[in-house]
């Protein structure tokens, strides 16, 4: 397969963006173009089926725009985007694309439609015409997958932020997507809720083989991802394993991001001449590195 995804080899990519461009056009009252801002600037991106992907970027870096493209809520101004082999710019692909790639949004309140948890989970399957008995089966399975079965008869208003987000995830899972895009799902949550949501995403990835695309600016959430993309002003500016990404502390700071505390500390120690390997990610790793350094000295 060549760099453009053409070739005879069967493509394993569930998401494939080629020179994807998105422009927001702002018009004045007469309909004249007032300004054009480029939210996505010739993005090339491949996501392998079954991976856990993280997309990092500061607010306004274009990562949410990218997420909306994957769900066909937006269509490319230029370039192409294939989701599970379907061109998102084709009108007839809109619903299959949305079914293949589900989406969880930032604000937990603004994406739950029904007044009862289980009915909300059933909303997606209802829309795509799943038979009643099958809806019930899926609702049960999805609620169990996110650990919210206990709350199925509750009103969403009585749940915590983290619980609401898990209901939202269940609502997407019930549509049996191949891929779930989570657009800053933890930005409005407290640390406990955050941990719950991230754990749920990992479980879905591991146990159901769902491809996860996690968009976030919390660095701790990225550590366990298979691959990380960093976005800045509409471009993918870095990509690699978490270790590769976090070994470039200075560059991340430039992109208005930060790194986990242990990584910063390891970096500072290394700069001061202590023998610590590059790209330390976890506490465990740093403890071991420091102890090794202590033995040598």
């Amino acid at each position: 397969m060549d760099a453009w995804g053409r070739g005879t080899v069967i493509c394993m990519s569930i998401i494939r963006a080629r020179q994807l461009v998105h422009e927001y056009i702002r018009r004045d009252e007469e309909g004249n173009v007032e300004s054009i801002s480029t939210a996505l600037d010739h993005v090339d991106l491949d996501v392998k089926q079954g991976d856990f992907i993280a997309i990092l970027g500061h607010n306004g870096s274009g990562k949410s725009t990218l997420a909306k493209h994957i769900n066909a809520l937006l269509t490319p101004s230029e370039g192409t985007l294939y989701v599970d082999g379907m061109d998102t710019s084709a009108e007839e692909n809109i619903f299959p694309v949305r079914q293949a790639a589900g989406m969880v949004f930032q604000n937990p309140d603004n994406q739950i439609i029904a007044s009862v948890v289980e009915e909300d989970v059933g909303f997606g399957p209802e829309n795509i015409g799943v038979p009643t008995e099958e809806i019930w089966r899926r609702v049960e399975e999805s609620l169990a997958a996110v650990g919210m079965t206990k709350y199925r008869h509750h009103s969403p208003n009585k749940l915590s932020g983290g619980q609401k987000q898990r209901v939202a995830i269940a609502g997407v899972v019930a549509m049996q997507p191949k891929c779930i895009v989570l657009d800053e799902p933890t930005a409005m949550l407290d640390p406990n809720g955050r941990a719950d949501v991230i754990r749920t995403a990992h479980e879905l990835n591991r146990e159901k083989g769902v491809t996860i695309i996690l968009i976030t600016h919390y660095m701790e959430e990225v550590v366990d991802a298979d691959k990380v993309f960093v976005m800045d002003s509409g471009k993918v500016v870095m990509q690699g394993t978490p270790r590769q990404i976090f070994s470039q502390v200075g560059k991340l700071k430039e992109y208005r991001l930060d790194v986990p505390q242990v990584t910063i500390l390891a970096d500072l120690l290394r700069q001061s001449g202590i023998n610590i390997p590059i790209g330390v990610l976890t506490r465990q790793e740093l403890v071991e590195a420091v102890l090794r350094a202590a033995q040598i000295s």
């Binding site: 640390p191 506490r283 403890v287």
Partner: peptide, 20 residues
């Protein structure tokens, strides 16, 4: 109670426990 100390506090406690 569902809170945590900063990451570095854990790290330092672990290092101290390891004899450093």
């Amino acid at each position: 109670i569902g809170l945590a100390a900063p990451q570095v506090t854990y790290l330092m406690h672990e290092l101290a426990a390891a004899g450093l």
